[in-house]
Deep mutational scan, measured.
Amino acid sequence: MPVRRGHVAPQNTFLDTIIRKFEGQSRKFIIANARVENCAVIYCNDGFCELCGYSRAEVMQRPCTCDFLHGPRTQRRAAAQIAQALLGAEERKVEIAFYRKDGSCFLCLVDVVPVKNEDGAVIMFILNFEVVMEKDMVGSPAHDTNHRGPPTSWLAPGRAKTFRLKLPALLALTARESSVRSGGAGGAGAPGAVVVDVDLTPAAPSSESLALDEVTAMDNHVAGLGPAEERRALVGPGSPPRSAPGQLPSPRAHSLNPDASGSSCSLARTRSRESCASVRRASSADDIEAMRAGVLPPPPRHASTGAMHPLRSGLLNSTSDSDLVRYRTISKIPQITLNFVDLKGDPFLASPTSDREIIAPKIKERTHNVTEKVTQVLSLGADVLPEYKLQAPRIHRWTILHYSPFKAVWDWLILLLVIYTAVFTPYSAAFLLKETEEGPPATECGYACQPLAVVDLIVDIMFIVDILINFRTTYVNANEEVVSHPGRIAVHYFKGWFLIDMVAAIPFDLLI
């Protein structure tokens, strides 16, 4: 008679799926529990143990900040960024110097990925580790590398530091407007667009060049630039800015003055950032001319202004700041037409079709709590990747769950009947059967004279019903998954307890 339990259901295979997918890609990662103190490590794979030199037993239950890997060259700011990422709910990448158990130093890129439950609360953290440099290539500990984003994938490793954006290309926007319009339909740009040429040739750093990471940081200074100062900065030398009595002219307006920039070969870094931020506020060169004239017309309804409409929906549905990093990277690809469009465009503009998908598509409701890094690593669709929660398995109709209350009560009843059979069957065979043979035949009273025979008949009927119930009862397979398919249940029961239950259900007393 089957006594099969499996009270692990309803099970959740999400954690096993993450481990299996990460292991298949030869990654070095740990999984931490966000619900406990210090976000203790609950799993670390073999790749991480080989990377740091510690065994799994030495890593388990330690804080996922990996303070046991810190050393003299470990930056405090990087460690603080990892700790801050564990307090938030967004994906974050941090470069930090770690030390192995043998004392060797290596520069590592740590990717902190939160995993949320159905309520939107962070319950786990996945920390992925990628070695960037070994100890002989690690720089000085005073050099802070965590304020910069990861290198873009479309640049060669040897040319990542030679990417320079020439400031004269930004200063000569109005001069290039006529050349853009003359391109017409034969050019790649839309009317009114501004073409910015980027020099990728390796050259020595000069005062006129600005690194790509500095251009990325310009967006942080746009908020500090007032509207009046932006307007004066875009007017140009024809209309000098008016300053109040006793007030000095704005240095932001002076930063885009061609006369002032041409007199000296070098520009201050602050002026460069502010000038680029001011130019980015204009949607095209037409807006710059309109600002000089004193009238700013409404933005025209053409394809170039609607190019950012799908980007707005993608940004609203993005799951991490990696989408913004990807957008900034692609927006700086050289030799393309940049349409400086305000994100607050007309909502009635139709979304044009684009061959290049900048932001990841909208994630469906079932995966809105899973970050983009987890979705990318697992390579699963929205119909396959579940949320991290207890999910009731989908069972067929008329199927009994093996952990249901009805099955528990039924098993206790069958257990009592088995005990009765084990006690009274030998007793009936030894004593009652002998008395029946010696006594007179009682054929007239039937079952009324033999109450134990009636009980034995009921017990046999219950055993037959138990066999039928076992054909529709779920079970737990070797992978700790609840199986509810009727065919698989029948095959599993035939290979197991079916023969024993059938022999126990045969009414031998009635056959004798």
Score class of each variant (00 low, 15 high):
R4L: 14
A9I: 13
A9E: 12
P10R: 11
Q11C: 14
N12F: 07
D16I: 11
D16K: 07
I18F: 06
I18D: 01
R20P: 01
K21G: 06
K21M: 08
S26L: 07
K28V: 12
I31P: 01
A32N: 01
N33Y: 03
A34S: 13
V36G: 07
E37T: 14
A40M: 15
A40R: 11
I42K: 01
I42W: 01
D46T: 06
D46E: 13
E50I: 05
C52E: 01
Y54R: 01
S55L: 02
R56C: 03
R56W: 01
V59F: 01
R62M: 08
R62P: 01
D67Q: 15
D67W: 01
H70W: 15
G71I: 01
P72C: 02
T74G: 01
Q75Y: 04
Q81P: 01
I82S: 01
I82E: 01
I82L: 15
Q84T: 05
Q84Y: 03
L87D: 13
E95V: 08
A97R: 14
F98G: 01
F98C: 05
L109R: 09
L109F: 15
V113A: 06
V113K: 09
K116V: 13
E118S: 08
E118P: 08
G120V: 06
A121W: 09
I123G: 07
M124F: 13
F125T: 08
F125H: 06
F125C: 06
I126M: 08
N128C: 09
E130C: 04
D136N: 13
M137E: 13
V138C: 13
G139P: 09
S140Y: 15
P141Y: 06
P141D: 15
H143Q: 11
D144F: 10
D144M: 07
N146M: 10
N146R: 13
H147N: 14
G149P: 09
P150Q: 14
W154N: 11
L155F: 06
K166S: 15
A172S: 09
A172I: 01
A175L: 01
S179D: 11
V180P: 06
S182V: 06
S182H: 12
G183W: 06
A188E: 08
A188L: 06
G189P: 15
A190E: 01
D197L: 01
V198Y: 05
L200C: 13
T201V: 05
P202T: 06
A204S: 04
P205A: 15
S206R: 07
S207R: 15
S207V: 10
S209L: 14
L210G: 06
L212P: 12
L212D: 14
L212V: 06
V215F: 06
D219G: 08
H221E: 12
H221C: 13
A223T: 14
G224P: 06
L225D: 10
P227C: 01
A228Y: 06
E230S: 12
G236F: 15
P240H: 15
P240R: 07
P240K: 11
P240Y: 15
A244T: 10
Q247S: 15
L248I: 15
P249I: 11
S250C: 15
P251G: 11
R252N: 05
H254K: 13
S255I: 05
P258L: 12
S261I: 09
S263R: 09
C265Y: 14
C265I: 12
S266N: 01
A268H: 07
S272F: 07
S272V: 05
E274H: 05
C276R: 07
R280I: 10
R280K: 07
S284G: 11
A285S: 04
D286F: 05
D287P: 14
A290T: 15
M291T: 10
M291N: 07
A293P: 14
G294Y: 12
G294L: 12
P297W: 07
P297C: 07
R301T: 11
H302I: 09
S304V: 14
S304C: 12
T305F: 11
A307L: 12
M308K: 14
H309T: 07
P310S: 13
R312S: 08
S313M: 14
L315S: 15
L316S: 05
N317E: 14
S320P: 08
D321V: 14
S322P: 14
L324N: 14
L324K: 13
I330L: 11
S331E: 09
K332W: 01
I333T: 14
I333H: 14
P334Y: 01
I336V: 14
I336D: 09
I336L: 10
T337R: 12
F340M: 15
L343Y: 07
K344V: 10
G345Y: 06
F348L: 07
L349Y: 07
A350R: 12
A350V: 05
S351D: 06
P352Y: 08
P352T: 03
P352W: 11
S354F: 07
D355S: 10
E357T: 11
I359K: 11
K362A: 09
E365I: 04
E365G: 12
H368C: 13
T371C: 09
V374T: 04
Q376S: 09
Q376V: 08
V377P: 04
L378C: 05
L380Y: 03
G381I: 03
